[in-house]
Amino acid sequence: MSKISKVAVTVALGDYYGNNSTGYTALPFVYKNVTDLQSFLNDKTWETPVTVLDIAASKANILAKLQEVIANLGSGGWLVLYYTGHGARFDAGTGLANLKTYCVTFTPDLRYNYFPGVLSFLTEDDYAVIVKAFGDSIPNGHLITILDCCNAYGLIDTFAQQEDFHTVIAATSADSSAYYNTNSAFFSAFSQVWGSTFDQLQDAINQKMSAIGAPNTCIVKLAKNFQQATF
């Protein structure tokens, strides 16, 4: 079986929160965003495996899917990890340095408990493991993580490694909320400029976010080896 060269893992949590009384609102736009992103990437010859969504999008399942995809990715392969859902920060009460950012992935406990424990979710520590696994497995590869959630950049800002191959497109800074109405402000902006080179993306997205009345919170961390590249 031949190895694939460009693949996008999409994770979407929309309805899931709607079934809970935990303060996390439903995000009905995530399905359309995933479909739109997949169509865009398919046109650019990317492979887009089955979307990991709602109750399938547990931390274990996301990590398993990524492992599966990385195992099938050839040398120099590109991997997009797109997450759309809620993001949050956990304060253990031990000072700012110990704040943990996490994606509010599926956990059955959230149905009954507002704070089921940060280890139930995909945290910045889990994300660091994903980045390391990619770097170890795919020489000369390119990992592009797109985080469409609150506190998005918090998932990456505590570690500054693997800069050669690691691009992050975060909807928000570590301490800001993501704006949405009928769609997330970030995705509305991103989908208008996703043909740009990576080094132009941050300014282009923020400009479009300002145009729709949202604060320009997008941060793009560029991989050193792929600054002029596009999707």
Partner: peptide, 9 residues
């Protein structure tokens, strides 16, 4: 994961 995801949708 694929099977659960398709069942979920």
């Amino acid at each position: 994961v694929d099977q659960i995801a398709i069942q979920t949708i």
